[in-house]
Simulated scan of single mutants.
Amino acid sequence: MQDYIEKSKYTVVITGAEISISAGIKDMQHMNVLEVMQIMSQVILLVAPNHYYKIAWKIF
């Protein structure tokens, strides 16, 4: 496997949700749904970027 990765031009890794948890990223069960909806909103990013980044910092 390592040989294939080292020789490849591009590497794509597909993982499940558990990899993010072990990296310290919260899963959806531990996030505030309203905050997640706000962070996914491009409108909030454009209209109130300070609010957007404040929520993003809190979530991640």
Rank of each mutant, 00 (worst) to 15 (best):
D27V: 10
K58L: 04
M40P: 00
V43I: 15
K7T: 03
V12I: 11
V12T: 08
K9H: 02
S8V: 06
E35K: 15
Q29R: 15
I44F: 04
M31L: 11
I19N: 02
A56Y: 09
Y52S: 07
K26Y: 08
H30Q: 10
I21F: 04
T15P: 01
I5C: 00
I55S: 09
A23F: 12
M40I: 13
Q38L: 14
A17M: 05
L34G: 01
L45H: 09
G16M: 01
N50D: 08
T11P: 01
G24W: 08
H30C: 04
E18R: 15
I59G: 00
M37T: 00
Y10I: 03
A56Q: 09
M1R: 07
V43A: 15
V47P: 03
E18M: 13
A23H: 10
E18G: 15
Y10N: 02
G16A: 11
M1V: 11
I55P: 07
D27G: 13
D27I: 14
I39Y: 03
K58V: 01
P49Y: 01
K58F: 04
S8C: 08
Q2F: 12
L46N: 08
A17H: 03
H30A: 00
I25P: 05
F60K: 03
M28P: 11
E6N: 00
V36Q: 05
G16P: 02
M40H: 09
S8R: 03
N32K: 13
H51G: 09
Y52K: 07
L46K: 11
Q38W: 01
M37C: 11
Q29E: 06
K54C: 00
M28L: 14
V36Y: 06
L45V: 06
S41D: 15
P49I: 01
L46E: 11
I14H: 07
Y4T: 04
V12G: 10
M28T: 10
L46Y: 04
E6V: 05
S22H: 10
M28R: 15
Q42Y: 03
N50Y: 04
K26M: 14
V43S: 12
S22D: 15
M1P: 05
I44L: 15
M28I: 11
S20H: 03
A17E: 03
L45T: 07
I19S: 06
V13L: 06
Y52G: 15
V36D: 06
M37H: 08
Y53G: 04
N32Q: 05
Q2V: 08
K9R: 11
S22C: 06
N50I: 08
I44P: 02
E18F: 09
K54G: 01
V43G: 06
M40N: 10
T11F: 09
K9W: 02
H30K: 12
Q38H: 09
V47Y: 12
K54D: 06
D3C: 02
V12Y: 06
Y10W: 12
Q29F: 15
D3W: 13
F60R: 07
V43P: 01
Q38E: 06
G24R: 00
Y52I: 09
H30M: 09
V47N: 13
I39S: 03
V33N: 01
I21H: 10
Y52R: 06
